[in-house]
Write a protein that binds this DNA or RNA. Structure first.
Length: 727
RNA sequence: GCGCGGUUAGCUCAGUUGGUAGAGCAUCCCCUUGACGUGGGGAGGGUCAGAGGUUCGAAUCCUCUAUCGCGCACCA
């Protein structure tokens, strides 16, 4: 009965991911099948097939790689492989993100640490060379990991958010928005990061709770109203006191103006009534500092109040006598508090919890400052978009369900964010990034795709928010603004699968850019995934917490297939995952189980004449029907993006139905011989290839390896075989 | 302050048209020449956070409470 002659040597030993994965990935790459054009050329995909397209959310070239990337890579590759096997024209575009601020500050820190130098010591050009070198190294690491994860990305279409093609797209997009007056330069109160020495957008702010003192005092002895503030040092820039118009206590003062000398600085205060002031908070009177508070600036605008800047870009005082001038804000705060106490003006000092704004990347405390910056107007009607505003262009496709967000609950979060969106500040005072395509000569301003003709033009020194270029990603990677065939074929993308933490940063900006520049949605579905957390602490993996698990070590020990299964099974959209090595171990065993199932099938069917017509007995036919039903069920679930359920079902079927029940039964029937033995053998060779085919999107390596050992598969690749269910 | 999510076996979590609860790992018992000990067979273990409601029937729908976590926010 046993015929060992046809059993591949490898199968007699336990499965080794190490001996398999790298070799298989190279073979896939060499085959060219990651590229849909090659799939069409070689006849595995019909030229008129439906397309399935997705972009890799470009990882930042900041050098850090973690399980979060592996998690994302796996889910995307599962869908990509599934759809490729279903015969769709399948494109998954790889790329990386220059991540302007993140990368620059990373290199600045390294430069400081290793050489004790600041970027100014090198100058713009030399510093940028350093950043580019760092970015290149990070890029290589990232690409290496993507290959290790088995990602079937079309490397021939790889892009970088800061390469020349993408730069051309950025300049084109900027100019169009500028010409439509959606991009404008304006003097506004912006979020200044004194540590990073740049402006940042509202979304790059992280609120942190801190203890603070709330001081209540009067500007001077004869000033009629007391005010409260946590920042006395800004009060030398006050130009008004605002009260609620309904507040009986202060009605008599509204409209009056007072002069005072506040800690040596002459100030002129007008009393104004404004709805935004809450009667209950503090004294119910708000000292208005138009230069250093967003809300105060708005009050000032409504009441036509002057603006006095008292703090500079280094968070130091730029006004006042010797006691204040040049002091840090925190020092000045104490100096003024002391002055208030000495003068008998201080009425109350309370400890309160306060939310302060810090910069996401540098951690610096944000200083609201009036500055001239570039903005995107989100509330301006756009003539060639039916007079809709960018806000409306962002809201519409989600509201009318042409874009669906999974899980559904994030749609409300999205609406809420877009509705409250203010103009997007897109200029940054950093060196690494797309330089703003605007040139100045005297009072002349020129915005264009190319440098203007003639001498004397100087380009704006600022660079763009990194999300401006990543917002173009779904079409800049397909050749836009050129009218390429890729754009026609793969737009809009079928799906995009980022983490929920970049719903606003990235997803919203992609919708904005695509809706405005192309007049269509960037993708049909947004599948938001969660965060990979540490199994024991529940904390987010991070370098600072030093709790990171290196995916490369996991792969080295248990194999990519096992890691992929552990990351994908049972994790629904939007749910965080606690990374559990036990789960990886379990799936490493599963790889080996498949290996041994194969050995059994090969050993027991070597003598089978495969040309014979199928002659299954009733119970074997029932088993085959069960498999067919399962395939229909999981195919439907795959189409609904429920791959986290499918992985579990296939695992359970392969092990606990096929191996534990079907194989055990077949063993006896084959031993007994006769028609039952034939039926059993035929069942084995019918079911086994289906199992590894269906498992391929999840465990591509071990299944591809087993496929190559099947009789009659020749040199074909499982990755481009037909999915075993038509439904 | 506004909003969202979780709370199901010791642990990590599934359970989408409501029909007397599932998986993996862990635990305990049994089985080693028979595809695989990275194995096989079996067992224990849950008032599905709590209360109320709708229903013939609820982990699943509604309300409230508790608790943990998250997002947003110009409270000076």
């Amino acid at each position: 009965m046993h015929n060992d002659n046809n059993i591949p040597e490898k199968l007699l030993k336990p499965y080794s991911s190490k001996d398999t994965e790298e070799r298989i990935y190279s073979a896939w790459e060499a085959s060219g099948f990651f590229n849909p054009d090659v799939c069409i050329e070689k006849g595995v995909t019909a030229p008129d097939a439906e397309s399935f397209s997705i972009v890799l959310p470009p990882p930042n070239v900041t050098g850090t790689l973690h399980l979060g990337h592996s998690f994302e890579d796996t889910m995307e590759d599962v869908l990509v492989r599934f759809n490729r096997m279903r015969g769709k024209k399948t494109l998954w575009v790889p790329g990386t993100d220059h991540a302007a601020i993140a990368t620059q500050s990373k290199v600045e820190k390294l430069l400081e640490k290793e050489e004790g130098k600041r970027k100014q010591d090198l100058g713009r050009e030399a510093f940028l060379k350093r950043v580019e070198q760092f970015a290149q190294e990070s890029h290589d690491t990232i690409v290496g990991q993507l290959r290790l994860m088995g990602s079937s990305l079309d490397w021939s279409r790889e892009a970088f958010t800061l390469d020349s093609d993408r730069n051309f797209a950025v300049r084109t997009a900027f100019k169009k928005m500028y010409d439509d007056r959606l991009i404008y330069r304006g003097h506004r109160i912006v979020n200044w990061d004194p540590k990073g020495q740049t402006v940042i957008s509202d979304d790059e702010i992280v609120h942190e709770e801190r203890k603070a003192k709330l001081y209540t005092f009067k500007y001077s002895k004869d000033f009629p109203i007391s005010i409260s503030t946590t920042r006395p040092e800004t009060k030398i820039g006050d130009t008004a006191v605002a009260v609620n118009p309904e507040d009986e206590r202060y009605k008599e003062f509204v409209g009056k103006e007072y002069d005072a000398v506040f800690c040596g600085v002459p100030i002129h205060i007008k009393i104004v009534a404004d709805e935004s002031v809450e009667k209950e908070y503090g004294t119910g009177a708000l000292g208005v500092t138009p230069a250093h508070s967003q809300i105060d600036a708005e009050i000032a605008k409504r009441h036509n109040l002057p603006t006095v800047q008292v703090i500079n870009e280094y968070a130091k005082m730029m006004l006042g006598g010797e006691n204040l001038m040049g002091k840090k804000t925190t020092e000045a705060r104490e100096i003024i508090a002391q002055w208030l106490r000495t003068e008998g003006l201080m009425e109350k000092e309370e400890d309160i919890d306060q939310n302060i704004s810090t910069a996401e990347r540098s951690g610096g405390v944000i200083e609201p400052l009036p500055k001239l910056q570039w903005f995107i107007n989100v509330n301006k009607p756009i003539p060639d978009r039916g007079s809709k505003t960018l806000k409306e262009l962002m809201l519409d496709p989600v509201k009318d369900a042409s874009i669906s967000i999974l899980p559904n609950r994030f749609e409300n979060v999205y609406y809420n964010w877009v509705e409250n969106l203010r103009d997007w500040c897109i200029s940054r005072q950093i060196w690494y990034g797309h330089q703003i395509p605007v040139w100045y000569k005297g009072s002349e301003v020129y915005c264009g795709i190319e440098t203007p003709e003639g001498d004397g033009w100087t380009q704006d020194e600022d660079t763009l928010d990194t999300w401006f270029s990543s917002g173009l990603w779904t079409f800049s990677t397909l050749g836009w603004p050129n009218n390429t065939s890729d754009l026609k074929t793969y737009r809009p993308n079928t799906i995009v699968m980022p983490g929920y933490e970049i719903l606003f940063f990235w997803v919203a900006r992609m919708i904005l850019m695509s809706q405005y520049l192309l007049g269509e949605i960037p993708f049909k579905t947004v599948y938001l995934h969660g965060i990979v957390r540490d199994a024991s602490t529940g904390k987010k993996f991070s370098k600072s917490a030093n709790n990171g698990v290196d995916p490369l070590e996991v792969i080295n020990q248990y194999g990519t297939d096992a890691l992929r299964m552990a990351l994908v099974t049972g994790v629904g959209p939007g749910n965080d995952i606690k990374f559990d090595l036990q789960k990886v171990k379990a799936y490493a065993k599963f790889s080996n189980k498949l290996w041994n199932i194969a050995r059994f099938v090969f050993e027991n069917t070597a003598s089978l004449d495969r040309a014979q017509p199928l002659a299954l007995d009733a119970e074997d036919q029932a088993s085959l029907d069960e498999l067919t039903a399962l395939m229909q069920e999981i195919t439907k679930e795959m189409d609904e993006y429920k791959f986290y359920l499918v992985a579990e079902k296939l695992y359970h079927y392969a092990w606990h139905t096929f191996a534990d029940i079907v194989i055990e039964r077949c063993k006896q029937k084959i031993a007994a011989g006769g028609p039952g033995a034939l039926s059993a053998q035929q069942l084995l060779v019918s079911v086994f290839p289906t199992i590894i085919t269906a498992l391929h999107p999840f465990m591509p390596f071990v299944t591809e390896e087993l496929w190559s050992m099947l009789p009659d598969t020749g040199s074909s690749f499982l990755m481009v075989e037909k999915w075993p269910c038509k439904a």
